[in-house]
Simulated assay, not measured.
Amino acid sequence: MKYTAKAWLATLALSLVIPAGAWAQSILKIGWTTTDSPDDPYALAAHYFSDALKESAGDSITVQYYPNRQLGDEKQMLEGLRFGTVDAAVITNSVVAQLEPAFGLNDLPFLYASANNAYQVLDGAVGEQLAKKLEAKGVIVLGFTEGGFRHMLNNKRPVAAPEDVKGVKYRVMQNPVFIDMFNAMHGSAVPMAWGETFTAVQQGTIDGLEVPLAVAAGNKLYEVTKFLSLTGHSYSTNLLLISKRAFNKLTPEQQQQVIAAGKKATDAQRVKSAQNDAALRKVMADNGMAVNEITDVSAFRSAVAPLYDKYRPKVGSALLDQALNSAQ
């Protein structure tokens, strides 16, 4: 009896020393579809998130990495997040827009004039409204990380004006905004899952694709494409997401740590991505691609202007107007 009392007292004393929530050991498996490259924007978001959690949560939360589609393509991962079979993921905005159409706002061509302009909108009231809509469907937004501006790569010709897109088969995400964007410029939009794209370009099934520079370099697309045109036609934000079911299994303290880690990771990832951008242009050129700048985008804007009216009802008229006013 005396021994039992001592043991109980020792346990009680230890519980008073260890912070609340330290008993709970949690594992978060985070997936993304691209490589685990030091320049890849998806990988950067995952690693910065893990690093930030390690600082605040210690061993209470362990983040495990699943790059290269190990948890499925983005659409599959997003469904997994909804139903709790995937804990966390970094997913392209355009795929999220298939679940919550309001996110199509971010895919509208030439909406954001600069990355800082995008941060202003996404970190403000517009981003909050988008996050609430997605949370209602079982997925929590931890951050709008930097994907970078998207550019056109192809094997036919450099793109300097909308007419240069005509007749060229571009792989686009399985998203109606991107399909309509390329069709508006009389290109041939070919919706395709990311995992099939490299081989499709290599074999000539498609002529090219459109991605941010970091994705182009990280996946060595210079090996299968000749021309890189810095069209900057769309700003890509990659969403750092956690399943609401996985989030609700965490202690209140862990939940706050996850939210704070998401913000810290987003800020760090944006800084690193911006630093990488200029260097990545050189990487593409040094590996044999012909790179051209677009100095005047007015003709492109005119070509895609009808998309704003078409997608206003899906995005939400009030939300679109708020974003347009904030993006000025």
Results as ranks from 00 to 15, higher is better:
residue 20 A to L: 08
residue 80 G to T: 03
residue 292 N to H: 05
residue 233 H to V: 00
residue 152 M to R: 03
residue 267 D to W: 09
residue 18 I to P: 01
residue 96 V to N: 04
residue 259 I to Y: 09
residue 20 A to K: 06
residue 154 N to D: 06
residue 147 G to M: 06
residue 288 G to A: 05
residue 215 V to T: 13
residue 320 L to Q: 03
residue 231 T to W: 01
residue 13 A to C: 01
residue 155 N to H: 01
residue 102 A to Y: 02
residue 242 I to N: 11
residue 137 K to M: 02
residue 26 S to A: 15
residue 62 T to H: 11
residue 305 A to Y: 07
residue 287 N to L: 08
residue 268 A to T: 11
residue 50 S to R: 14
residue 322 Q to V: 01
residue 1 M to E: 11
residue 327 A to F: 06
residue 179 I to Y: 12
residue 73 D to E: 14
residue 30 I to R: 04
residue 66 Y to K: 14
residue 42 Y to A: 15
residue 105 L to N: 00
residue 241 L to Y: 08
residue 289 M to S: 08
residue 135 E to L: 02
residue 3 Y to L: 14
residue 123 D to P: 02
residue 192 M to E: 10
residue 78 L to S: 03
residue 63 V to F: 08
residue 314 K to E: 13
residue 185 M to A: 12
residue 307 L to K: 02
residue 192 M to L: 15
residue 84 G to I: 02
residue 146 E to Y: 10
residue 194 W to C: 02
residue 295 T to N: 11
residue 37 S to Y: 11
residue 26 S to V: 14
residue 225 T to I: 10
residue 247 F to K: 04
residue 191 P to S: 08
residue 25 Q to D: 06
residue 326 S to L: 13
residue 279 A to R: 13
residue 133 K to N: 04
residue 42 Y to R: 14
residue 178 F to C: 15
residue 213 L to F: 09
residue 175 N to W: 05
residue 90 V to R: 04
residue 82 R to W: 01
residue 135 E to F: 02
residue 242 I to P: 12
residue 255 Q to W: 07
residue 87 D to P: 01
residue 149 F to S: 03
residue 57 A to D: 10
residue 306 P to F: 01
residue 41 P to S: 12
residue 73 D to I: 09
residue 118 A to R: 01
residue 203 Q to M: 13
residue 255 Q to M: 10
residue 313 P to S: 04
residue 288 G to W: 05
residue 23 W to H: 11
residue 70 Q to G: 05
residue 53 L to I: 09
residue 299 A to E: 12
residue 53 L to Y: 09
residue 48 Y to R: 14
residue 275 Q to H: 10
residue 265 A to C: 07
residue 99 L to N: 03
residue 246 A to S: 15
residue 64 Q to M: 12
residue 124 G to K: 00
residue 317 S to V: 04
residue 49 F to A: 13
residue 119 Y to K: 04
residue 203 Q to I: 11
residue 250 L to G: 15
residue 66 Y to D: 08
residue 265 A to F: 04
residue 252 P to N: 09
residue 105 L to V: 01
residue 129 Q to V: 01
residue 296 D to G: 06
residue 225 T to L: 13
residue 262 G to H: 00
residue 189 A to P: 12
residue 21 G to M: 00
residue 275 Q to I: 10
residue 122 L to D: 00
